[in-house]
């Protein structure tokens, strides 16, 4: 499959709308574990990105530059802990696709692997700490493994999203070890991590986006 800066822009716009819809749900999850503002934080960041996409990024044809601006915009708008984490994800993703006007299957795989690994490196969390990493690392591992077998991005991404979903759901059963909720100890068991949930929504929305795009083309 082929993917361009325009596709990235369209995908990011879908995320902007999706986050608005999920804002209250994400806050609700966060109220059980943190200070109840995860949906608000994500919304502030994606609203800022939405404005950029409609203005200075409206004609950007370089996927890497588009991703760098998206990352920096998110960081400036939110700070918080998700700011540096997602900013690093988008910037590392950008680095993986530098100077490529059209992305093909292996480029898209590289982008998402760099995205997930960048976030892990910035936050230094491990699987089992009850964070977004519980979604992203199974997702990255699944993507790399499936892609090496099939060389088909859509097929591999599909399996990776399933692995990410499983990881997200596993956060219900674990005790927080990172971030503010780590201070809750055993009281954190039973609640699904909001950061793991929003990370899942971002990858699953990408899957829906590329599937719909393929349907449209065919």
């Amino acid at each position: 499959m082929e993917f361009t800066a325009k596709d990235f822009r369209d995908y990011f716009k879908v995320i902007v709308d999706m986050i608005e819809e999920q804002k209250d749900y994400l806050c609700e999850l966060d109220r059980k574990l943190g200070d109840g503002d995860h949906g608000v934080t994500m919304s502030i960041g994606w609203q800022a990105i939405g404005k950029k996409l409609d203005n200075e990024l409206a004609d950007e044809e370089d996927s890497a530059k588009l991703n760098i601006t998206v990352g920096k915009t998110f960081l400036s708008a939110v700070g918080s802990s998700v700011g540096p984490l997602y900013a690093t994800g988008f910037m590392r993703g950008a680095k993986a696709i530098k100077n490529k006007p059209v992305l093909h299957d292996s480029d898209l795989k590289d982008y998402w692997v760099a995205f997930g690994n960048g976030i892990q490196e910035r936050g230094q969390a491990e699987v089992g700490d009850k964070t977004m990493i519980d979604t992203l690392i199974p997702f990255v591992d699944g993507l790399e493994k499936s892609f090496s077998e099939s060389q088909n991005f859509l097929d591999a991404f599909n399996k990776a999203v399933v692995a990410g979903e499983k990881g997200m759901k596993s956060t219900k059963d674990i005790i927080s070890k990172r971030g503010r909720s780590s201070r809750l100890g055993e009281r954190s068991v039973g609640a699904q991590d909001p950061g793991a949930t929003s990370a899942y929504l971002i990858i699953s929305t990408f899957l829906e986006f590329v599937e719909q795009r393929i349907e449209k083309v065919s």
Binding site: S76, A77, G79
Partner: peptide, 11 residues
């Protein structure tokens, strides 16, 4: 100065 209960960004 950050957003409510959220760290300021590096800027």
């Amino acid at each position: 100065v950050g957003n409510i209960f959220a760290s300021p960004s590096p800027d």
